[in-house]
Design a binder for these strands. Sequence first.
DNA 1: TATTGTTATACTCTATAACTATA
DNA 2: TATAGTTATAGAGTATAACAATA
Lengths: 170, 170
Amino acid sequence: MDRDRIDEPRPAFLLSQLGAHAASQFAERLKVLDLAPQDAGVLRLLRVAAGLSQQELAGRLRIHPSRLVAILDNLGKRGLVERRANQEDRRLYSLFLTKRGEETLERIGKVAQEHQEALLSALSREERDTLATLLLKVADHQGLVRGVHPGYQRMGATKRPGEPVNTKSL
Amino acid sequence: MDRDRIDEPRPAFLLSQLGAHAASQFAERLKVLDLAPQDAGVLRLLRVAAGLSQQELAGRLRIHPSRLVAILDNLGKRGLVERRANQEDRRLYSLFLTKRGEETLERIGKVAQEHQEALLSALSREERDTLATLLLKVADHQGLVRGVHPGYQRMGATKRPGEPVNTKSL
DNA sequence: TATTGTTATACTCTATAACTATA
DNA sequence: TATAGTTATAGAGTATAACAATA
């Protein structure tokens, strides 16, 4: 059998374990700004891709369009994001970051920096660089989109999108 | 501002992103055995700590005891885990892996191996070792318990344990 | 009175599909 | 007819608290 010895943790499990830990720690820190990770994702994407429609934004973040509505309602109500009417097609909104949204994004950046510092404090600068290089290599090879967290897709969801509804559960 | 250039992905974000990806890929592969990640966690722990009570098991896995009931009902019904009456204290069950449970654990090991191979295929053997070393260093420093995934705590949950019930939502 | 395992209830959050208005 | 954004509904899965048996 050969596996009755003390388990050497598999790197894949470590990755998954640490990733979940990192995500929850970051979400915890974001609460200071009264924001959730998806909110940060939306704001960050709108900085580099201003003017997107909701459909486009949802597509890029892998969020269901109907879910994005509530997220944008909240961010809009708080004056961080603006829905501007699109002249050419009046069915569409064009989404923009407000001044306050940009400021909030700066604060998010600080929070993320502190988070990362705490998370990786066990590593030297050089080790962090090595880690970043390796992770980026794997992420690119796996086809992960920069800045798009798989968790955005379903943060507290219970059913996978596209998964058939289970009529006769239990 | 200095951050208007192309984002160098932060290693902390990469970690979180890749971790979520790894977790979902693994969960997907586990479906072949009709098991969820928590099930694998239960079986694995019972291999090295046979005879635990449900309370002890729940405590170690950071799963709510009432949730563990359904998990064990399922594993028991399928003959992978056995609830033996405890002679000394008849309120307790002593949990054991069955023969079939051990076999299933072997299969899980194979699935995990394949999963890891696919996940890290971008890296050389040496790079994988380096990655494992760095991750383990961080995980230990963060106080993560070997083999206990933070996601076990809430896999599709909507409310954090201990969090007050939100009476006036919206 | 306290603890183990169990169950019923309430709660949160989502995807789906219907809906409105525009095209 | 088709598409953008919105909303209503139902589904899924949890934590909490109450429960019965035992200590």
